[in-house]
């Protein structure tokens, strides 16, 4: 007799479908970005939610400290609610959209994508430190791949194009330096 699956397991067990043509995926991104600027004057963003979550957490544990750090005053100073910002709604949408797309196309699966020479735990550690480096850089550059490279790129910001070029150059150089990580 077949075991009765939970609804969650059913979502995970949906058959994996191939990814779309990335040119099509890019067009979906482009239209979303255009509608965002047209309707709300904002581009797309992602690193801002990290900054606001950070502000929220520091405010939770050390509320007095917030008012001494310029980066935190901006998002959580005084009685400011760090999540009272357009980025919060956008990220709720991102999570909904990612869930729907991943489930529909059978890619909603607990797994650790990694290079063949890297252990699961090793990959987790790299992801942690990579995320740390990335977000430190994203705060320094005042935006990440979405806020700077995509949104600033499409609105023809000079600084964003420079950031995008430097980022790609360093990504290719780093990739060559750590081939074993992904090959």
């Amino acid at each position: 007799m077949a075991e009765k699956k939970s609804w969650f397991q059913k979502l995970i067990d949906r058959p994996r479908k191939p990814y779309a043509n990335p040119y099509v995926g890019g067009a979906v991104l482009g239209v979303s970005l255009f509608l965002s600027l047209l309707l709300t004057a904002n581009g797309l963003g992602a690193s801002a939610i990290f900054a606001r979550t950070n502000g929220f957490l520091v405010n939770l544990f050390a509320p007095h400290h917030v008012d001494q750090v310029p980066q935190l005053i901006k998002v959580a100073g005084g009685s400011k609610n760090p999540f009272n910002n357009w980025i919060t709604w956008e990220v709720i949408g991102v999570i909904l959209g990612a869930f729907a797309s991943a489930v529909y196309f059978g890619r909603f699966k607990p797994e650790t994508p990694r290079g063949p020479k890297v252990s699961e735990k090793g990959r987790w550690i790299m992801a942690f430190f990579g995320g740390m480096i990335f977000l430190y850089g994203a705060r320094m550059a005042r935006g990440c791949t979405s806020g700077q490279v995509l949104s600033g790129g499409a609105t023809l910001s000079a600084g964003s194009w420079l950031i995008g070029l430097v980022m790609f150059a360093f990504a290719f150089a780093t990739a060559a330096a750590v081939r074993k990580l992904w090959n």
Binding site: A46, S47, I49, F50, P113, R123, M126, A127, F128, F129, G130, G131, M132, I133, F134, L135, Y136, G137, A138, R139, M140, A141, R142, C144, T145, S146, Q148, G159, L162, I163, G164, L165, V166, M167, F168, A169, F170, A171, F172, A173, T174, A175, V178, L181, W182
Partner: peptide, 19 residues
């Protein structure tokens, strides 16, 4: 921007993602 972009380039390879 240049320094931030460089860190992001390193971070995306080590971390495997962007935000």
């Amino acid at each position: 921007g240049v320094v931030g972009g460089a860190l992001m380039g390193i971070g995306i390879i080590i971390g495997g993602y962007c935000p």
